[in-house]
Structure formats: structure tokens, C-alpha cells
Design a protein around this nucleic acid. Sequence first.
DNA 1: TTCCTCATTTGACATATATCAATTTCGATA
DNA 2: TATCGAAATTGATATATGTCAAATGAGGAA
Lengths: 232, 232
Amino acid sequence: MSESHFSDVRALNLFNLMQDENFDALMRGSYVLNFPPQTELIREGDSSDFLHIVLSGAVELFASWNGRESSMATVRPISTFILAATIKDAPYLMSARTLEKSRIALIPSQDVRAIFDEDPYFARSIVSELAFCYRTVVKNAKGLKLRTSLERLANFLLRQQIRSGGGSEFVLPIEKRRLASFLGMTPENLSRAFKGLRGYGVLVSGSKITISDQDDLEKFAKPDRLIDDHFS
Amino acid sequence: MSESHFSDVRALNLFNLMQDENFDALMRGSYVLNFPPQTELIREGDSSDFLHIVLSGAVELFASWNGRESSMATVRPISTFILAATIKDAPYLMSARTLEKSRIALIPSQDVRAIFDEDPYFARSIVSELAFCYRTVVKNAKGLKLRTSLERLANFLLRQQIRSGGGSEFVLPIEKRRLASFLGMTPENLSRAFKGLRGYGVLVSGSKITISDQDDLEKFAKPDRLIDDHFS
DNA sequence: TTCCTCATTTGACATATATCAATTTCGATA
DNA sequence: TATCGAAATTGATATATGTCAAATGAGGAA
């Protein structure tokens, strides 16, 4: 792993408290690979041999059943994914594919489990990370069950606006068809949902979004920190 | 806490590996309370002061937004709930209410966090438990996004059948209106869904379910271990 | 038992969302 | 710039699900 990536990974919440020698051991056993876009990295049901870290590019986590597919999350640098499967030594529940050309670090799951047992700081970080992941999925499930697709889209836009710095104009981070799948709707329905938000001051031009009436949109979306705050 | 409950709690995955003195310390600081049915134990958004353990009775976890409410899970003895909030010292994402007269143990969250730092076995168990919870919610989210309400019901019945011992006859563990909410539909729609499963050999009489044609139902439901196996 | 309350079921209807087919738009690349 | 293929949009329609009101049924209390 290159020095620059090395320190970026070290800075992750998951790794920033652990002892140097343990971090070094993890990194020594890891592989760094470049993948072209649209490469399937892991397939749900496979055994979890590696903890993955997205160093650059982007990775989509998705799930399939009975010929249907749904986007579950997008992982952007620098982040790990499938920690839970790694820890439990259980099969992956989601598949992963690169969305762009991506650089991925792979840490053998058994190394992660071994150092977890050695390093209480690492253990503490893993717990914190897992609790965070758990809460993220719960928030997602709440959104799915409590909101209509229009409301989910409206709140997604408000969250994205904040991530983008809070200005009234920002760019969608993923293709619309993936966004549709992530929000639990069809691309056609997403297109109509965007139209439906015009009445609340949302202007769409390609992937550029303009929120012309912040209050109006928020009044409709009713963002809730227990669903939409992705930082606790 | 009475001796019998004491050992039942000790037997939980979360507590069975930790050192005696640490377990004792947790129990010494804990409270055990009896609650009548329909008592709100925690409200989403509150700070997480206690890890809860259902000793007897039953507790529903539910979420609310904008005047709507959805049942997220039912917790039965002997199990803990809201571990993630406790660990992160973050506000509860879900509310909890007793469904029946229930006996609940409360362990101060700060004690849990303190002993987590002391006892590596406890830490290991917490990680395992959190990973398990995470995977459970991911499975739930997959079901919500990939299946229709009829398919969710069919698979719920198959899971419940297994939990009940695998016989062709069993009893629903919760009221139908709560089941409807848990499965993400209205009570009316659940009623119609039960009718819709008649064609696959599902007979309903009150809360008693009879699966008269196992193969037929399974062929329709297509249970998948990556969604329906709640043991890994 | 009888009554009362509340869950459940049913029917009619409204709304939300999906599907299918046909354009249109966009973006990569020759 | 021109072209190609995929993504996005649109319209028409089908299906799924929700809502409302009424009827039925089950269980507890007197």
C-alpha cells in the first residue's frame, strides 16, 4: 500500500486508535488492487475472507433475490465495508461492485479477528463502527417504512445538500437509476418524484439540483435527526 | 435480581463469556422492574441511560415519524435491546413499549461501557452481538426492498413455522395488526394477504396457522438464507 | 351468560407505484 | 463535431397498497 493511502487508512475511525505494530501487521497482510468499473468484488452468500477498504473510486453494495436487485448503499473513499460479516465469519449479505475505476485494499478477515483479540483499542473502534453501521441501517429501514417515495427523495436531497456544503445548488452523487433503487423505487417513478418536488421549489437539470425554496422543501420533507442525521 | 433470572441473563451470548466479577458488578448496579402492558419504556430520541433486558413478557420496538408509526421488532425473553445506543451513548432510534406485563432489567449504560473497557471477553461478545443485530436489520431491509407484502408474509410464516418446531400447525406470536405493521403493510392488507396465501395452502383460523402444502408455499415464498435465516 | 369493546375482516374506492413502450436526452468517443 | 448507446423521461396502463366505512368476530368483565 502506498504511503499516502497508508496514512489515510490509519486516519479512519476504525484504525486510528490501535497500536502501531498492530496496524502495521494488518497492513502487511493486506493487498491493494485496482479494479475497472462494474467489477463484481463480492457476491452475497460468499464467505467473508477479506475486510474491504475503498481507497479511491466508488463501490455499490446491492442485494438480490428472485431475479430482483436493490441498491443498498454506496461506499466512497476512504471507508471500509462488510465489517460485520468479517467479524462474525459469516457469509456476506450484500454483493459489491465498483461503480468507477477503484482502488481497493483487502485485509484478510482472520487478521482482523486476530488483532481484534489482541488490541483493545481496535476492539473499541470496531464496536463503535458496528454500532454506527447498525444505526445507519435502522435509519434506512425507518425511512422505508414511515415515508412515501416522494418524502424519501425530498429528505435524500436535503441530506445531500448538507453533505455538499449546504448551498442551494449541488450535484447528485450517483446515477438516477441507482438513486431510484437505493430509495426503493423505479427509475420512472423517481423521474416523476422529481417533478412532484417542483411544487416545493426543487429544480432538476441533469444531475444538478437547485433548491430554490429551502423552507418550503423542509416543510414538506420534515427531516428528522433520528432518520436523517447520518453522523450519530 | 432473583437468582433464577440472574443465571438466565448470565447464559445470554452477551454475558456468558465475561468474568464473574464483572458480571456481578453489572448486576449489582442494575434494577429490575415490573411493568404493566402497554407501558412506554423508552421514547426514541431520549438519551440511552440503560441497557434493557427483557426477563419476562414481551416488548415491542417501534418507530414514529410525522404521526405515523411502524413496528420494528418484538423482543422476547431473555434478550437485550438498544445495545447500539448504549454503546455509542447516542439517542435511541426506536421507542419501546411492553406488549404484556413484563419484567425488565436495566443496566446503567455507563456501567456497560466501563466494563466493556475492562473485560475483553465482554468486548468480544458485544461485537458479536452488534454484528448480529446489524445483519438482522440488513436482512429486514432486504425483505422490504426486494419482496412484495405477500412474499414477506409468506416468508414470515415459514420462519415462524421453524421457530415453532417445524410442524404444519402453529400460532402467530403477535397480534395481526402488529404483524401488519412489522411487515410494512396495513391490517386490511394483511387480511387480504392471508387470503391470497390460501391458494398456496395456508389456512388461517384466528391466530392459528396451518400450512397444508409446504412445498407449494415454499415454491412461492422462495425463502433465502441471506434474508430469512435469523441465526447467522 | 350477556354485554361491551376492540381487533379483524370485508367491500368500495382512492392513491401510489410498477410496468411497458416510445421518445428524448445525455455523455462518451470516434 | 457527429454518432452511438445507454440513461432518462413521458404517456398509457396495470397492479399493489392504502383509506374509509361498515360488518363481523373474539375475548374480557360484570
